Simulated scan of single mutants.
Amino acid sequence: MSPVNAKVGVVIPSYRVTAHILDVVTRVGPRCHAIYVVDDACPDGSGRFVQEHCRDPRVKVVFNEVNLGVGGAVMHGYRVAVDDGCDVIVKIDGDGQMAPELLPQFIDPILEGYADYTKGNRFFDLSEISQMPAVRLFGNAVLSFMSKISSGYWDVFDPTNGYTAIHARIVEHLPLDKISRRYFFESDMLFRLNTLRCVVLDVPMDANYGDEESNLKIKSIVFDFLFKHIRNFFKRIFYNYFLRDLSPASLELLAGPLLLLMGTVYGATQWQSSAQQNVMTAPGTVMLAALPVLMGFQLILAFLSHDMQSVPKVAIHRRLHRKRKALSQTPV
């Protein structure tokens, strides 16, 4: 696929963004061939508003009969864009926080074969993040750490950033019905992308906060996100280290926690027994408890090192495209 001939679609989930949506659509540059405004059962009728006031022939308004959440709206937009033959699909919000002028920086790495999925990173330029409210700054740092563990993308930051681009071949292999429909969907996307071994690339961007009000409240979602990150972590570990492959890291992951638990339990039991008898624990007993703890800790560190080095490095969308083309040419 030539970057010049590639068809680029932009999906804009629309919910209570009537004041900003037209400006966002107007600023989408000529690199984009189609714009999909997804009215997610918007109470202020932003979809109808766009239809009545926007004359850009690239714009297609898609309506959800019921509110599916931001993730559900994006997945609907993805399906329509893929059906329309788009090669790369960009997702931006309709509230004006994301500059459409940055669109080439998101699509070029995909078209050039360096990435399968790109996403914004508002933390790249430290001089710019002072614009971000303190509670968001702290909350995003916590969420980024949880996302690194659950998704396996240790080199990716700002996981809740909704400015993204993805190759259509990757969309076709994602379980769109299983991806979270609410605010967790960006983080859930990273987990799903890792199971496909997709390359994810951060794109530096500035934080931009005007008079728009975000519906994402960090304090209200931290514990919900924590539960879902833990769930995705265990799923990823099972998929990557036991179901699809068995490597030395798999054995390290099994032996490390087991030795750490055995040493801790044995040491605690011996300490309690010595305390009850009011005697000092024998040095040999201490060493017998400490040795499995140290070995277990070292094995866990070795597994983490392997996991951090296992971040996907080779984009797979070209391989998927060639496979699809080969299958279409196979005689029946």
Results as ranks from 00 to 15, higher is better:
119 K>Y: 09
119 K>I: 09
119 K>R: 13
124 F>G: 06
125 D>T: 09
125 D>P: 06
126 L>P: 10
127 S>P: 11
128 E>I: 10
129 I>A: 06
130 S>M: 08
132 M>Y: 06
134 A>H: 09
139 G>T: 04
142 V>Q: 11
143 L>C: 11
144 S>F: 12
144 S>I: 08
145 F>A: 15
148 K>A: 12
149 I>G: 07
149 I>V: 13
150 S>V: 06
150 S>K: 09
150 S>E: 08
153 Y>E: 00
153 Y>H: 02
155 D>H: 10
155 D>V: 10
155 D>R: 12
156 V>E: 14
156 V>K: 15
157 F>T: 15
159 P>A: 07
163 Y>G: 00
165 A>H: 00
165 A>V: 03
166 I>Q: 04
166 I>K: 03
167 H>L: 07
167 H>Y: 06
170 I>P: 02
170 I>L: 01
171 V>P: 00
172 E>V: 01
172 E>T: 06
172 E>D: 04
178 K>I: 07
179 I>T: 11
180 S>H: 15
180 S>F: 14
181 R>A: 12
181 R>T: 14
182 R>D: 15
186 E>P: 11
187 S>V: 12
187 S>W: 12
191 F>N: 13
193 L>S: 05
193 L>V: 00
193 L>N: 04
194 N>L: 05
195 T>G: 05
197 R>T: 06
198 C>H: 02
198 C>W: 01
198 C>V: 02
203 V>T: 05
204 P>L: 01
206 D>N: 11
206 D>P: 08
211 D>C: 02
212 E>M: 01
212 E>P: 00
213 E>C: 04
213 E>Q: 04
215 N>C: 10
216 L>R: 08
217 K>L: 12
220 S>K: 13
220 S>I: 10
220 S>R: 12
221 I>Q: 11
222 V>F: 07
222 V>S: 07
223 F>W: 14
224 D>A: 15
225 F>R: 09
225 F>M: 14
228 K>R: 15
228 K>H: 15
229 H>R: 09
229 H>K: 08
230 I>L: 10
232 N>L: 10
233 F>H: 06
233 F>R: 09
234 F>A: 05
235 K>M: 09
238 F>T: 13
239 Y>P: 10
241 Y>F: 07
241 Y>H: 08
242 F>C: 08
243 L>E: 15
243 L>T: 13
243 L>H: 14
248 P>H: 01
248 P>V: 00
249 A>I: 02
250 S>D: 03
250 S>Y: 00
253 L>R: 01
254 L>H: 01
255 A>K: 02
257 P>F: 01
257 P>A: 03
